[in-house]
């Protein structure tokens, strides 16, 4: 080590300083490039470049095989006049709403239960998390069987209480509700663990102080737990919104977007246009709009979050 330091000191005194600096700089830049290159190349080929391609395809009419025909913004104009697209956009909005206003509160409730002073809660908490570990395809198929009008267990329960059999997934009035229930079932446990981690982080002294002041459980929840969980609620909402815009698997498996586009999402509609109808140009327009909406939502959330943090810093 000693000799090495000496060598460095010697080198510096002999060579011209600027030359030394620039060669070190180049060497450094090269090292950095070598570190980042493997990840960046894969990322560029499979993520960055495809986004540009999708935009380019969206300006063409194309069946995926023969020559493309440039049509300008025609696909987008057609899209805005396409009632199915508006249906799918509305359904996506429903997924967002249910995710934020049902899934997250349920996740919070489940997390609070984990701290309840009752026997067997350790076992229960293990089970509570199960749904999130199952693959979406398996979940979809399982619930399709459970919703089955003839052999499904849900209808058995429904008739037990005296109602008629319901074809849950094949009629427009119930299909969306039925699938959203499954979405909640699958993802509530995820928010449960986020909230669990956050609740563990709340200092015990806050509750003790409140107890001294004679606060009951409800006031403690509203004045301590909820405000302390606000950052988690915000980040959960971001995850829920962004995730809902991407929703595809469960709807594709359970209803395929049917009946009569009743549960169609941007994702399922794009998939059908691209890989069943081979309207690759039109599908690319839908795909690019999905990207654009996700981008806008992310930017809005970032701006809101920036102001929330700024406000927090002053208060």
């Amino acid at each position: 080590m000693q000799t090495h330091v000496n060598k460095m000191a010697g080198a510096r005194s002999v060579s011209k300083p600027e030359q030394k600096v620039s060669s070190v700089k180049i060497k450094n830049a090269l090292t950095i490039m070598l570190f980042i290159a493997p990840a960046f190349i894969v990322y560029a080929v499979y993520v960055l470049y495809p986004i540009f391609s999708t935009f380019q395809y969206s300006l063409h009419q194309w069946d995926g095989m023969s020559e493309m025909t440039f049509v300008g913004l025609q696909n987008y104009i057609q899209l805005f006049n396409d009632s199915v697209f508006w249906t799918s956009l509305t359904n996506n909005a429903w997924v967002v709403i249910v995710s934020v206003f049902v899934q997250i509160p349920l996740g919070l409730l489940m997390a609070l239960m984990l701290f309840a002073p009752i026997k067997g809660i350790r076992f229960m908490s293990s089970v509570y998390f199960f749904p999130f570990l199952m693959s979406t395809v398996a979940i979809g198929l399982l619930w399709v069987l459970m919703y089955d009008p003839i052999n499904g267990i849900i209808n058995q329960l429904v008739t037990l209480v005296g109602f008629e059999n319901v074809s849950w997934l094949s009629q427009a009035e119930t299909a969306m509700f039925a699938v959203l229930l499954v979405v909640v079932w699958q993802f509530a446990p995820f928010y449960m663990i986020l909230f669990k981690a956050a609740i563990v982080g709340i200092p015990e002294e806050l509750y003790e102080a409140a107890k001294m002041d004679g606060a009951n459980a409800m006031t403690k929840f509203i004045h301590i737990t909820l405000p302390m969980l606000m950052p988690t609620i915000v980040s959960s909402s971001i995850l829920a919104i962004v995730g809902s815009l991407k929703a595809f698997d469960i709807f594709y498996i359970m209803t395929g977007g049917g009946p009569n586009h009743g549960t169609e999402l941007m994702g399922t509609y794009m998939f059908k246009q691209a890989f069943i109808n081979f309207n690759m140009g039109y599908a690319s327009a839908i795909a690019f709009l999905m990207f654009f909406i996700a981008l806008i939502v992310t930017v809005i959330i970032q701006i809101l979050d920036f102001y929330r943090k700024k406000k927090g810093a002053y208060s």
């Binding site: 991407k246 595809f248 794009m270 691209a274 690759m280």
Partner: peptide, 11 residues
Amino acid sequence: MLPIHATLIPI
């Protein structure tokens, strides 16, 4: 935050 659909056809 990227929807996979935005890359599906090119991939």
